[in-house]
């Protein structure tokens, strides 16, 4: 049985027919064409499908799409502008925190959620936030540096505003 629901993704409202057993991940990728959110383990253990919902990093593979009505969903497609990358993305690029790039969207979204709430995180807070993500290439080392750099970029940006 399908339901027609309205999802708010990156500020846009999408009216979409979904089966109640479909996850947000399936709907984002298969119905809305938002393939930036990657499909990984599908059971909540790798973090590659991280999206931000109402300000919090969540796993699109473990959310039913029907449960996401009325919530504000941000995906990786929604954080950069036409002209520039989001400071978190720019920091990941500059610090060499991206290798194969498969885990990157999820980790960028996780980091963004962290910095939105905690603009100057310490190492422990960064590790805590990233504990549910998984990067097999970088050993997480440059990712830690990138999150700190992103924090600096964001503060510099705020100052110049």
């Amino acid at each position: 049985m399908k339901k027609i629901i309205t999802l708010e993704v990156n500020g846009d409202l999408h009216e979409v027919a979904v089966a109640v057993h479909q996850t947000l991940l399936e709907v984002l990728r298969d119905k809305l064409g938002l393939t930036g959110t990657k499909r990984g383990c599908a059971v909540g253990t790798c973090g590659v499908c991280t999206v931000i919902i109402d300000g919090k990093a969540m796993l699109a593979c473990l959310l039913l799409a029907v449960e996401c009505q009325g919530r504000s969903i941000t995906t990786i497609e929604g954080i950069s502008s036409a002209d520039e990358l989001h400071p978190v993305q720019q920091a990941f690029v500059d610090q060499g925190a991206i290798q194969c790039g498969f885990c990157t969207p999820g980790i960028v979204m996780t980091s963004k959620a962290l910095l939105d709430k905690t603009p100057r995180p310490d190492d422990e807070q960064i590790r805590e936030a990233l504990a549910g993500t998984f990067c097999r290439c970088t050993g997480h080392i440059k990712i830690m540096e990138a999150v700190k750099t992103a924090s600096q970029y964001e503060r510099a940006e705020k100052k110049s505003d």
Binding site: G44, A57, M58, L59, L63, T110
Partner: peptide, 9 residues
Amino acid sequence: IASQHIRNM
């Protein structure tokens, strides 16, 4: 418990 992602849900 688990990870922040999981605790957020």
